[in-house]
Each structure stands twice: as structure tokens, then as C-alpha cells.
Nucleic acid binder design. Structure first.
Lengths: 229, 229
DNA sequence: GCAAATTAATGATTTATTCAAG
DNA sequence: CTTGAATAAATCATTAATTTGC
């Protein structure tokens, strides 16, 4: 993985230096139960760490909490502009040709929105060709899907404008009816309806639980139509 | 950490029962290096586990990878409708009045998009009043912010329609210029511009690194204007 | 009074946009 | 100008309110 990241990491509750005029505790214990938000929750001590050189093996896979919204802007609120990136590591992921190749094969194979497990696997796999994090994989699919779609949309429009009035108003705007080509090899049924569940998942390691029935679902129906460029 | 979640957990690469006609390996080693996607990446064995009663203390905090998109729909693709929620645990989070109260205080205090650390803290805090996961907190802020905004927008429009032509075209549509009331106690400067960085963060535990300068920023400037209803 | 049927809220996801690094 | 990263808007789906018929 690539890592590097900067990070401003957050220290804990340490009641650092309470800025001028800021009530020590809110104590919103007024309604139902005697709940009072502990001070700890109200003011932290955020201190940007040093550059963070990016350990070659730093992949501690802390796993990046979904909501890992850093909002490093908070820091900006005060006065340290802390541009984070600072030194050392590069800022954003720069996929190697190999990585892209693999990703595209998967994409063409029909993968559109990999789940956490798949992302983990893919990340691990792509890690062989260079630094990469799960979020990169996640974003890549997100962006690729969106951009592929808009590309097709533009193309469709041009086609319509060019061939003028050939077809009435066929397929080209069903909210996603664009990708009428191949793509969606799988994922085909249940297309229009939104699927449920997301977040949850992530097998719990050892997994000793009640391993009742195993359905063994095939996640990558991908027919290797591609095989190469 | 708190967490517990249900889960349909996904088993690994176990080349379970390779469905009819599915090439054992894609081997897209055709371009640059000799990269060949291992079979493991191409077909897994997804097997929904038993109902998952929701252990009172099962919260192992696997951490919920940001991209934890489960896409349990994949399962649907085949034939097991596996509605996940199954038994025991309820499906969606149902905030207790206490939890909501706390969340609202924080919101009014100016918190809009808590970072992962804050979410962790909040989750832990709210966990005292009932089950809750980080994602719930994350979503709550996301939704609350959005809905509060649209509420104000509607209100603003009504006001304009009612008071007719009192003010020319003052403040009411700067993309977010709506929340002109209070709210944004902090987060005020840098409003219009998107902040950078997000994901990364999550201090690395022990943190022995070069703890150079600590800025100790105040994250919750919240002035307890509320204090109670 | 109560349970099916509706509606209103709001939790959870996805899609569209925007920002900015390279 | 391409594209990784991040956020906001739009949607979908459940659950709590509530209304309605008995």
C-alpha cells in the first residue's frame, strides 16, 4: 500500500487549553434520563502529527472506518493551516498500469460496486504492483462507473444527434439505461431496484459461529471475455 | 468501539463449488508484467451465516471499512433471498430519545461532519443509551445536516413569497447560504470552499512518532446556548 | 379499543458534483 | 484535461405515527 498519508491525528479527551470563554461542560441533563455529555466529548486536543513518512509496511489496515471523514478543516478553524501533506509521501494514489489493467478486467467482468471483502482482496492483490489502499479501489470503481456512464451518455446523445431521427426514443435515459452495451453481465436482474444493505458485513475473522447452510454464492460471474486488451 | 452488527459474512477464497462452466483462471497476463489475477479474486464462496442473534457484546469493532458496501444483493443474484435481518436483531437503528438529544446538542453546537475519531467517541458515548454503531452517527449527521438545510431552504422560500418584495435578492441561495441563522458557529470561515483531506487519519495507536508540535485545537467550540429545551 | 391501511419521518445507499493533484 | 478524492443531493426502504373501519 502506499500510505503515506498525512494525518492529523487526534488526541483524546485531554482537556487541552480551553479557549477563552468556553463552558466546561454542557450537561444537557434536562429531559428524560440523567444524561450528561462528558467533557471529553466536547473538546478534544487535536494535534497534527509529524509528516508521517509512510512505513513500507505500515499497512496496519486499521481499516479506515467508513466514516473516516477527517475534516482536517477543523484545524483550519483555529489558525494552523496545517496543509497536512507536508513532506515525504505523495499525496494521492497513482495507479500503476498493472493495477489499472486488473481493475479494468474486473470492471469489464461486471464488477461495479465491490463489497468490503472484495475490496480487501483486490487491494491485497493490487498491492503487489504498488502501493494502494482499500479506499483507492473503492473510489476507482465509483469514479470509473460514473465516468463510463457519462461517456456513454454523451456518445448516445451524439449518436442521436447524428443519425437524427432513426429511432424514436429508444433506450438512453432510464436513469441508467445507458449502459445498454454489455457491462452489467451480472448485476442484471435486480438492476433497477436498489439493493439493500451495505455497511455491515466484514466477516469476523475466525468465524466459528453457526455455520449452518452455506450457499456458496458466485460473486464474480465474470466470463473472461476480455482475457487481454 | 462498540459495534456488533449483523453480518452476512463472507467467506474467503475457498473455491467452494465452482459453478458450471467458469474458467479456473483468467490470467490476464498479457500486457506489462506477468500479473495474473488469482482465482481467489474471481470467485468466492459467499455464505450467509445463521441469523446472528446479535450478541450483547459481539461488538468486535472490526471497524467497518469505509467502503464497506456489502452489496448483499449479490446473494440475490443467485436465488437465496437471504433477507439478512433474519431473526433477533432489528434491521435499522432506532435512536433513543436520549441519543437524539445528545446528537442534537452536538449539532447545534456546530458539529456538522464529525471525523472518525469524533464519531468513535460519540458512538461510545451514545452506546450507553442503547445500541448504536459508528455508521449510525455518521449517517445521522449527514441526514440531519441535509434535511435541516432543505427545511431552511423551504422556509426561506416561503418567507420570500410571503413578504413578497421586501428585500431585493439578499441571502438565500449561495449554495448553502441558507443556514444564515446560527448553526455554523464554527466551520464558519472556509465555508464555501471544500475542505480537503478526509479518509486518512485514525491515529496509529501508541503513536511514538515524532510528536513535534502539538497545536491542541479545540474541536467543539460549542457554546452551550441550548443547555436544555 | 384494536389491527389493517396510510402517511410522515428518517435511517441507509447511491448518484451527481465539485475540488484539486499531476 | 484526466482522474483520484470528497461532499452534497437524490433515492430508496423501514419504522413510528396516524387514520380508518369494524
Amino acid at each position: 500500500m502506499r500510505l503515506h498519508h498525512f494525518h492529523v491525528a487526534y488526541l483524546d479527551k485531554a482537556a487541552g487549553s480551553p479557549p477563552p470563554s468556553s463552558p466546561p461542560s454542557i450537561s444537557l441533563a434536562s429531559q428524560s434520563s440523567s444524561a450528561a455529555i462528558p467533557l471529553a466529548l466536547q473538546q478534544y486536543c487535536l494535534r497534527p502529527l509529524a509528516p508521517k513518512i509512510s512505513f513500507p509496511e505500515a499497512r496496519k489496515m486499521v481499516v479506515l472506518p467508513e466514516f473516516a471523514r477527517v475534516r482536517n478543516a477543523s484545524s483550519r478553524l483555529l489558525n494552523c493551516t496545517v496543509q497536512v501533506p507536508t513532506a515525504g509521501g505523495t499525496t494521492r494514489w497513482n495507479p500503476s498500469p498493472d493495477q489499472i489493467r486488473v481493475l479494468e478486467v474486473l470492471y469489464r467482468g461486471g464488477m461495479r460496486t465491490p463489497n468490503s471483502f472484495q475490496i480487501e482482496q483486490i487491494t491485497e492483490e493490487l498491492g503487489k504492483y504498488g502501493r494502494i489502499e482499500g479506499k483507492n479501489v473503492f473510489y476507482w470503481f465509483q469514479n470509473h462507473k460514473a465516468r463510463e456512464r457519462q461517456k456513454q451518455k454523451r456518445a448516445a446523445l451524439l449518436t442521436l444527434n447524428t443519425t437524427a431521427s432513426t429511432l424514436p426514443v429508444a433506450a438512453a435515459e432510464t436513469k441508467d439505461g445507458v449502459e445498454t452495451k454489455k457491462e452489467q453481465a451480472c448485476e442484471d436482474a435486480s438492476s433497477r431496484k436498489r439493493r439493500f444493505r451495505t455497511w455491515d458485513d466484514v466477516d469476523h475473522g475466525g468465524g466459528g459461529d453457526a455455520a449452518t447452510d452455506d450457499v456458496t454464492l458466485e460473486l464474480f460471474p465474470l466470463r473472461p471475455q476480455g482475457k487481454a486488451s
